[in-house]
């Protein structure tokens, strides 16, 4: 399919991008890598008059470590995220996520900001980032604001971004000692969207789980925390029965639908199994 007609705008700074967004409102769409937006445009699902390409904004692709943690520029490609030495060192569970996404070619184009702002319930980068307590830095006409990534998504394809606002940075805070995570993704073939994604980050104390966050992808309108399951595990010594219980409760927290990729029944079952396995894997890593 061919792209419908549109005008391409190539701002050179974040401010310029925000003012173009403010000016054109719903008539404009942002392109951060193009791996999603061009496809939906070709299918005529959206027909923006303006496509605001961020490619020319040079200072949005970076991964910086500081005393608080790391800061990831929104235009950082998935490949760069996977290959980053500092991410591998500080948050190996985050560095592993891009390798479970799409293909080499798409990872070279797709960006972390694009993956998050596209706001697919199945976005692979979201669960583990939410578990890590990541924050989203947003630039806009009234200056900058920071929101917890957990509060960033409001529905399929919808985020808290207001008129003229742009996601510019993901901030991942340092984690306590003996903290590790895991992201398990169920898909039909190797190169695929998630039918279910389960992200878990635990802080370990002996054989017990001192703290835990569980985030489920592709089983609700947005990525969701499985807080009841977290409460069951938190502070407890981990054994198989507890893991079964956590999985079961997480699957009750999920609100999956039937779609072309999988049924609600299957998604519920997989949440059950993958929550269990992800906690186990994260606990192993946190030794």
């Amino acid at each position: 399919m061919r792209l419908p007609k549109f005008e391409y705008l190539g701002p050179k700074t974040v401010q310029e991008a925000c003012s173009l967004l403010a000016q054109h409102g719903d008539k404009a769409k942002v392109m951060a890598g193009g791996t999603d937006v061009l496809n939906v445009m070709k299918e005529r699902k959206i027909r923006p008059e303006y496509l605001i390409g961020l490619r020319a904004i040079s200072d949005l692709s970076y991964i910086k470590a500081d005393a608080d943690g790391i800061k990831i520029g929104a235009l950082t490609t998935l490949t760069d995220l996977a290959n980053s030495a500092v991410v591998k060192e500080k948050f190996p569970c985050l560095a592993e996520v891009p390798m479970k996404m799409a293909t080499v070619q798409i990872r070279n184009m797709g960006t972390i900001g694009g993956n998050l702002c596209n706001a697919a319930p199945s976005a692979d980068t979201a669960p583990i980032l939410i578990c890590l307590g990541a924050k989203a830095k947003i630039a806009g006409p009234k200056g900058e604001r920071v929101v917890a990534l957990e509060d960033f998504f409001t529905g399929p394809g919808k985020t808290v971004l207001g008129k003229g606002e742009l996601l510019v940075e993901i901030q991942v805070p340092n984690q306590p000692a003996k903290t590790a995570g895991a992201y398990l993704k169920m898909s039909r073939v190797s190169v695929d969207l998630a039918i279910v994604g389960v992200g878990v980050v635990v802080t370990r104390e002996g054989d017990s789980c001192k703290d835990i966050k569980i985030t489920l992808g592709a089983v609700a309108p947005t990525p969701i925390r499985a807080k009841k399951a977290e409460a069951v595990v938190k502070g407890k010594k981990i054994d198989d029965a507890l893991l079964e219980e956590a999985g079961k409760i997480a699957s009750q927290e999920a609100k999956p639908i039937d779609d072309v990729r999988g049924s609600a029944f299957y998604r519920t079952e997989i949440v059950k199994v993958y929550t269990k396995r992800a906690i186990k894997q994260a606990m192993e890593q946190a030794k």
Binding site: E43, V189, S190, V191, V260
Partner: peptide
Amino acid sequence: CKFDDKGYMINANFQDYKILSALD
């Protein structure tokens, strides 16, 4: 190939019609 209740093919693309890749 999946069809909706009107006979429209809902997965006429490689996002949702899954052929294996070399990895599989």
